[in-house]
C-alpha cells in the first residue's frame, strides 16, 4: 500500500507548479490552467486524508471542489473571451488600462 505521505508530496509538488505558473506565465489561459492545477492538488490532498483518517468527508469536499472548478472555468473563459474581443490579446502584462 502506498503511504499517505507520498500523496501529500505529490500534492505539494502540483501546488508548487501551479503557484509558479500563476506567478510567472503571461498568457491568461495558462494562468487559469495553473489555478486548476492547484485545485487538483487540493483534491489529491483531501482524498488522501480521507483514506488516511477513514472518514468520507474529504471525498465529499473534493466533489464540491470539482463542481466549483467547472463553474469557475465556465465564467472565467467567458470573461477571457469578452476581454479578447475588445483587446485582441491574452497577455497579462498588457492589461494596463488600470494600473496593475
Amino acid at each position: 500500500m502506498i503511504p499517505t505521505s507520498h500523496y501529500l508530496i505529490l500534492s505539494l509538488l502540483l501546488f508548487t507548479i501551479g503557484v509558479i505558473g500563476v506567478v510567472t506565465r503571461r498568457n491568461v489561459v495558462i494562468i487559469l490552467m495553473s489555478i486548476e492545477l492547484i485545485l487538483n492538488a487540493v483534491n489529491i490532498n483531501l482524498v488522501a486524508f480521507s483514506r488516511h483518517l477513514g472518514s468520507i468527508d474529504g471525498q465529499a469536499f473534493a466533489i464540491f471542489i470539482i463542481t466549483d472548478a467547472a463553474a469557475e472555468a465556465a465564467v472565467g473563459l467567458g470573461i477571457i473571451i469578452a476581454y479578447f474581443r475588445n483587446r485582441q490579446t491574452l497577455l497579462a502584462d498588457e492589461m494596463d488600462l488600470l494600473r496593475w
Binding site: 500563476v22 472565467g76 470573461i79 477571457i80 476581454y83 475588445n86 483587446r87 492589461m95 488600462l97 488600470l98
Partner: peptide, 17 residues
Amino acid sequence: ASKSNESALKYFLLGSF
C-alpha cells in the same frame, strides 16, 4: 468597455487563486 473587461479578468484570476 475594455476597462470593465480588464477589471473582471483581474478579479477573476486573483480571486480564484
